[in-house]
Simulated assay, not measured.
Amino acid sequence: MTTTELRLWTVDEYHRMIEADILTTEDRVELLEGQIIQMSPQQPPHAATTQRTFNYLNHLLVGIAFLRMQLPITLYPNSEPEPDIAVVRIKSREYIDGHPTADDIFLLIEVADRTLNSDRTSKARIYAQARIAEYWIVDVNARQIYVLREPGEETYQQEIILDGNAKLSLLAFPEIEVEVSQMFL
């Protein structure tokens, strides 16, 4: 029996496939750990919670950080995910020359309705290995937030689950108080 090895792609190869129109916006894919993965379609609760969370945090962080919604971030050497929300450094050219990288990122947020398991495992591993200091998973179904901090070799060393009555602050901006209830409809 012949075994076939999986061919993993780098960020640079992925970008060349996009530039050559091998991959287009119609493909709805992201690069995760060298694999080109089909993105899940969004149900209305996911889309509405993403928009509400984005609007709320954007209001709190205006002039302090940029918020990007469902746009790529580049995590060398082999991941270019599209988190639901990325809180990133303000740059005068607004990332026209390249997507934000790990050094630009304060916080990543994934909104989960059907993807909670993969967001807690594979996405957490990718973000922790890239040394993203803070990662939140907004669980639409349970109306709670997983707050992951202290990135380690394989995943985050700290995970706190907060319900809708909780308040928290971002590691990067401890003076900003976030009310979990404001992220849910």
Rank of each mutant, 00 (worst) to 15 (best):
Y56M: 07
S40N: 14
V138N: 00
L171T: 13
I126G: 01
A128G: 08
L67R: 04
M39K: 15
N78L: 05
L171G: 12
I22C: 02
D84K: 02
H15F: 12
V180H: 06
T155Q: 15
R7N: 08
I176N: 06
L23Y: 07
E19R: 08
P100C: 03
A48F: 12
Y156G: 04
D103F: 03
V88C: 02
E19I: 05
G63M: 09
I160P: 00
R120E: 01
T49A: 12
D103N: 06
Q157P: 01
F184M: 10
A172H: 05
L71V: 07
F173T: 08
R143V: 12
R28L: 12
P44T: 09
L61E: 09
V147N: 11
M183H: 11
S92E: 14
D21F: 07
L116Q: 02
T74H: 04
L57K: 00
G63R: 09
E33D: 15
D163T: 03
E179V: 11
L75I: 04
E153I: 14
L162F: 06
E33V: 00
M1R: 08
Y156H: 08
P81S: 00
E13H: 07
E159V: 15
D163I: 03
L61C: 09
L23N: 04
R16V: 02
E13L: 03
T25K: 13
N78A: 10
A86Y: 00
E177W: 10
I145R: 04
R89F: 01
A20H: 08
A48K: 11
L71A: 14
P174H: 10
A172Q: 06
P41Q: 12
Y156I: 11
R143L: 12
I90F: 01
A130T: 06
M1Y: 06
E159Q: 15
N58A: 14
D27W: 11
E30M: 13
